[in-house]
Design a protein around this nucleic acid. Structure first.
Lengths: 162, 162
DNA sequence: TCTCTTAGTTTACCTTTCAAAGCAACCGAG
DNA sequence: CTCGGTTGCTTTGAAAGGTAAACTAAGAGA
């Protein structure tokens, strides 16, 4: 039975389509994909976050975030603001231009998926949702928003065994 | 109704988990993610393909493939071989070392997904498969293996509006 | 033959990413 | 209050992935 294989193929199509789409969309909006993702996360967090949180969420190092934020600042998309609580911390804040750009460059999934999804029958939506959540749980063992470090840790079992 | 949002969240978890996992896995195998992907595609095609096909499949330019193949050749993972049919064409062929590396570095999805999937009840597998294929069809409008150029074309509506 | 197209490479450049080293601020003992 | 450790962020230097544009070489017509 090839259900496993077929599922994998479908999953890969999803991943590939999303990736390609994301690149197109970002370049259409005049920002690079990585910068766009930073902005989207900042927006998601209510318009302001720390570099640390961004690094964790994106699964990249803090150094990378510093670089991206540098460029976003230069582009006028975000500002850096000292936190008054903890003066080591910095808040990355979306500028108006940043918000405007986000409005014009809607999320890759948003755009393509939502339109189709909302056309489905009620029961179909319910089934899709439950399946997607199931798959997400299968792939993303730890909780969402958890540190990516856990991923690496969790992997060590399999990795070192090779 | 938040089913749309919840579905999007689940989708993003899937994407993020896969991406992070892929990076870990590749670095554990001692190759970079992009090189690993090239090798996987070559394997999938039966051990030999053209740069052109690789570029199309991965959605990157041919120049990028040239670069990746250069490095893979230097690493001893693949060889270049003239095609006898059309002498412009080149065949990228997996070396033994390349095959061995692939064996040790199973596919990211493979590893994590298959194990779980095969534990599911029969009807659950069927439902997941149908849902995944549905989503894939929604996101990946054009046919699989189609040129990535189509993606760009489809976007032109939104793009040029900026 | 002359031109068009296709496959692949080269060149020159940008972006993303990291590890390692550094700086500055916070925090808990003493 | 001050020393040592930790935490948050930046700098630096290097690698990898990606591109567009110009180039070479081979097929394919007409």
């Amino acid at each position: 039975m090839d259900r496993t294989d077929d599922s994998l193929i479908a999953l890969r199509r999803i991943l590939r389509a999303t990736e390609l789409y994301e690149r197109d969309l970002a370049s259409a909006a005049g920002v690079t994909p990585a910068k766009l993702r930073v902005m989207q996360i900042v927006q998601m967090k209510g318009g302001t976050t720390t570099p640390k949180a961004l690094a964790t969420q994106m699964g990249v190092s803090q150094a990378t975030i510093t670089g991206l934020v540098d460029k976003l600042v230069k582009d006028g998309m975000v500002k850096r603001a000292q936190s008054s609580m903890d003066r080591r911390q910095i808040n990355v804040v979306l500028s108006e231009k940043g918000e405007a750009t986000l409005d014009r460059a809607p999320d890759a999934l948003q755009q393509r998926f939502v339109r189709e999804f909302e056309r489905l029958e009620d029961w179909e939506q319910a089934q899709l949702l439950s399946s997607l959540e199931r798959v997400a749980a299968m792939l993303d063992a730890r909780d969402i928003d958890a540190s990516p470090v856990l991923t690496v840790g969790a992997l060590d079992h399999d990795k070192r065994a090779n």
